[in-house]
């Protein structure tokens, strides 16, 4: 299914048969699942499916934000650092607020015990703010996206250490336990959050004029400018969406680990880029969709999960994943009409 097809079909979702014919990644996912079911009695157990879906949620959210940025022909290397930074900032701000109110919200040395909802809101706002800074630097100050977000990545990693003094913070409230561990009708809560963001982004990108601007900017920024599109605003918006997704991924990630620690999630930005690319998002911009990023996430997570179930070492996992990814990208290119690429 081409991006054009996806966009024109925004009034109604395409039929399953159409989707299966047009999406080689779906066949790959099916092949992985069937192989898993045949070779391991544990692959399709509820416990393992939960593990797989949780993995999809965090990496999928990072990749969704990356997809939106890549649609504009840019990149965001700071997503993983933002994901931890937003949580660290939330802890620090809430503890300071607590101090101001005469309340002790950091107990046992480094366990956060304050209210959860303001905490989550601060984390989300921080993620969006980091995205806005990246976007402003890139759109208005003409800093190359690679440089701007690499600087952000490095600076945020440094800030994470400075703000925490290298100490972990424990997050042990019932809300974090719910977000990290709760399963609703067999689906982890974190997956439901991911799916909600996915649907929202599909509707936004494919069903609104603002969403179509991302494709226009990525396809030809000059043409978009000549057409009267204020490209800077949409570039900033794309980075803010990426920051939002990163912060949300940070919430799901740290809620599962019940803690936040400065060095966590190192290198996850590359995984996010890989997933987006597997899903067919072009590094040059203008091509891609959140739906395909979902497929990319599923290929990535289900493949890794299968290798883990087989007990294959991580060195070999990396090798096999790399090979499969190249094959997946090639297959998706072969099956797609030329116009979309």
């Amino acid at each position: 299914m081409s991006d054009a097809a996806l966009k024109t079909s925004s009034a109604g979702f395409p039929s399953l048969v159409t989707v299966l014919r047009a999406e080689p990644l779906l066949w790959l996912i099916a092949a992985i699942i069937v192989t898993g079911a045949i070779t391991s009695e544990y692959y399709l157990t509820g416990q393992n499916i939960e593990n797989l879906l949780r993995s999809v949620s965090v990496f999928g959210l990072l990749a969704l934000g990356m997809t939106v940025v890549m649609l504009t022909g840019r990149i965001d290397l700071s997503v993983a650092a933002t994901m931890i930074f937003s949580i660290v900032v939330a802890v620090k701000v809430m503890v300071l607020l607590g101090d101001g109110l005469g309340l002790r919200w950091l107990v046992k040395g480094n366990t956060y015990a304050g209210p959860s909802m303001p905490f989550l809101a601060i984390a989300i706002v921080t993620g969006c703010a980091v995205g806005a800074l990246n976007g402003i630097g890139i759109a208005y100050f003409r800093i190359a996206p690679f440089i701007m977000t690499l600087v952000s990545l490095t600076a945020l990693r440094g800030f994470n250490y400075v703000l925490t003094d290298g100490h972990p913070y424990y997050l042990r409230s019932p809300v974090f336990a719910f977000v990290g561990d709760q399963v609703v009708l067999g689906i982890p809560f974190s997956t439901l959050v991911f799916l909600a963001v996915l649907v929202a982004l599909i509707l936004f990108v494919n069903g609104t004029v603002a969403g179509s601007r991302f494709y226009a900017i990525g396809g030809s920024e000059r043409a978009a400018l000549y057409a009267g599109v204020r490209t800077e605003r949409f570039v900033v918006l794309a980075y803010m969406i990426s920051g939002f997704c990163a912060a949300l991924a940070g919430i799901l990630f740290t809620a599962r680990l019940k803690s936040v620690d400065a060095p966590l999630a190192s290198g996850y930005e590359l995984t996010a880029i890989a997933i987006a690319v597997i899903g067919g998002t072009a590094l040059s911009g203008g091509v891609g969709s959140p739906w395909r990023t979902l497929l990319g996430s599923l290929v990535f997570a289900s493949g890794l999960n299968l290798l883990a179930i087989w007990g294959i070492g991580t060195w070999y996992q990396n090798l096999i994943v790399g090979t499969v990814l190249i094959a997946a990208v090639a297959l998706s290119r072969i099956g797609r009409p030329r116009a979309s690429s």
Partner: peptide
């Protein structure tokens, strides 16, 4: 990768 270690343990729980 601490998260990866957690996922490995979760896989062994499933197995």
């Amino acid at each position: 990768d601490d998260n990866k270690m957690g996922q490995v343990i979760d896989t062994w729980i499933a197995k």
